[in-house]
């Protein structure tokens, strides 16, 4: 079946990306990743991981309920978003070339999955628990808040609102992938862009914990920027969704890092960061 083919492709490609990146990161870090800490880390973040797991399962299970509820109580803001930003996405698509389309399609599907899964592997192998804990908390916040927003706001993306001006580049060039995306998401769930928020979350965490894995920072930054642009370039999200996604990411990382410090910080400064007294952007700047 097509769905199975797409799924197999994604798993295979993401696995390859994982192996490649582990090599690159280790090289850039200039030291072995410590495997010994894996068991310890898993034990330490077990409860957080369980919460994230429950949230993900619930997300899948209540997706139908969420959509029904959304049409009952949600606010249809498609027109408002369009009034706010106009034809920005259409202008962006004016730059389209076959190569860019191929690149952004790849990033949107494979790159995104890789970007989300790799930090978990990376930080699980690290001897400090905090990056892993912060990542899991931040993911959970992204999904949780995203889910609430999807119930409260009904919005269609530019590809569904401006046919003619905005092309659905991903699905016209690669229709099979819609078998996958229509299983995991609804076309009314675009505000905010979870693709953007989760990718930016990964990048902000890479900045925050760059001492833990210096090699990861450039990959995560380029990846997050690419995914954010891809969501608009492919006509799936509005600029508004992307900006909201970035805000959500900043919030999630701020809370995630704080929780990680409170729960797992033992006073010793294992990865060269110290606890920030102030909240906000200070957390990412260090």
């Amino acid at each position: 079946m097509s769905l199975l083919t797409v799924l197999t492709n994604v798993v295979a490609v993401v696995l390859v990306l994982h192996l490649l990146s582990l090599g690159v990161v280790r090289r850039l870090a200039g030291r072995e990743l410590r495997r010994g800490s894996l068991r310890e880390n898993v034990r330490a973040v077990g409860p957080t991981a369980a919460v994230l797991g429950v949230l993900l399962v619930a997300n899948g299970a209540v997706r139908d309920v969420g959509v029904e509820l959304s049409w009952l109580i949600g606010l249809n803001i498609t027109g408002a978003i369009h009034a706010l930003e106009g034809a920005f996405v259409a202008d962006l698509q004016a730059l389209a070339t076959p190569e860019l389309t191929a690149y952004f399609s790849f990033v949107y599907v494979f790159g995104y999955v890789f970007l989300l899964t790799f930090p978990i592997v990376l930080y699980a192998l690290h001897d400090d628990t905090r990056p892993l804990a912060a990542t899991l908390v931040a993911y959970a916040l992204n999904y949780g808040i995203g889910l609430v927003c999807y119930v409260l706001f009904v919005a269609y993306g530019p590809r569904n609102f401006m046919p003619g001006a905005v092309e659905s580049l991903l699905f016209t060039n690669w229709p099979e992938v819609q078998h996958l995306t229509s299983r995991v998401n609804e076309n009314t769930n675009v505000f905010p862009s979870l693709h953007t928020s989760l990718s930016v979350t990964v990048a902000l965490l890479a900045v925050r914990y760059r001492a833990a894995a210096p090699g990861w920072l450039p990959i995560a930054t380029v990846g997050a920027a690419s995914v954010s642009v891809a969501t608009m370039y492919l006509g799936i999200h509005w600029l508004t969704d992307v900006l909201a996604g970035i805000l959500l990411a900043a919030f999630s990382v701020a809370v995630g890092a704080r929780v990680a410090d409170d729960e797992h910080g033992d006073g010793t400064d294992a990865i060269g960061t110290e606890r920030a007294p102030g909240a906000g952007l200070e957390q990412f700047r260090r």
Binding site: F171, T172, E176, Q178, H179
Partner: peptide
């Protein structure tokens, strides 16, 4: 059920 008309056409083109 598929997500859009393009995917529907491709599903037929693929013989599925």
């Amino acid at each position: 059920v598929v997500g859009s008309d393009v995917t529907a056409v491709e599903t037929v083109a693929d013989g599925e």
